[in-house]
Design a protein around this nucleic acid. Structure first.
Ligand SMILES: [Zn+2]
Ligand SMILES: [Zn+2]
Ligand SMILES: [Zn+2]
Ligand SMILES: [Zn+2]
Lengths: 135, 135
DNA sequence: CTGATAATGGAAACGATTATCATCTTATCC
DNA sequence: GGATAAGATGATAATCGTTTCCATTATCAG
């Protein structure tokens, strides 16, 4: 296995366990929930390590990061790595990936008209999923 | 003076001072920045009281509330009370109120297609204002 | 004035996240 | 194999914005 000399990315038991947990979780979860899920699976991974890996993964774009109403950070490994947004259930965290060309265009137009530069956008939808709606 | 019996809303020196400060601040500020601004004006208002009033005002819709990249809550008294979003300067906090019919429609459509109910949206734009862009 | 009710604010508590740092793993070289 | 150095881990402590406590103060009706 060729590695760029001195960089070992993943391969540790903890990283594998975290990757597996992320892959199996269907919605956005907090670091602490993910930590609890790992424990539930019998994997012992320190909370600090969970935070550390989530940070790296989110910087890489491997996991998405949003903030819930209380300000807590939630993480999820999405199916796609191209730019998208989410429609997330407030109750269970389950999330649908959505893309919105019109939103991207709107954001660019608004930014240009106001003369702002380096503009990025936060667009998140929160609601109750069909299951949690109790239908 | 007719008051609904037992409800005294505003009128205290602290509430007035806070209202004045909010009216004069041109952009989004944290509770602590507002607290500092009050002190700068010679008004002594406890930090707890600042938080308390900001919470009430935001529940009433009198002030808008957003979260910056670090998760800190920022407040601003906007010119309008109708639904809108913001294009905010990451550097100085100055903010432009923007409305986007297409975004509202997009959000509704996405929510309906996924079968979610009680959907609301968070849409914020952050960039560098013309001044802070250093043009 | 007097008791009742509301508002204030300093201090302590909270909770998610981050920084420390001693220990454990892993890989490489002899 | 074993020595050694770099990297990763995780229990603990520290951070920091925010909230809760609660004793004190302000306001008002009667
Ligand atoms: Zn749900
Ligand atoms: Zn987008
Ligand atoms: Zn606004
Ligand atoms: Zn909107």
């Amino acid at each position: 296995m060729q590695q760029p000399r001195g960089t070992r990315v993943r391969g540790t038991r903890q990283a594998e366990a975290l990757a597996a947990a992320l892959a199996s979780l269907p919605g956005f979860c907090s670091a602490q929930e993910i930590h609890a899920e790992l424990r539930r699976r019998g994997e012992h991974v320190g909370l600090t390590t969970v935070y550390r890996h989530l940070q790296v993964l989110s910087e890489q774009g491997s996991v998405d990061m949003i903030r819930d109403a209380s300000g807590e950070t939630l993480y999820r490994q999405c199916a796609t790595t191209v730019h998208h947004h989410h429609l997330t259930c407030r109750s269970c965290g389950r999330s649908v990936e959505v893309e919105g060309r019109v939103v991207e265009q709107w954001a660019e137009k608004v930014a240009a008209e106001a003369g702002f530069t380096s503009v990025d956008h936060t667009v998140e939808l929160f609601g109750l999923c069909p299951v949690c709606s109790g239908g």
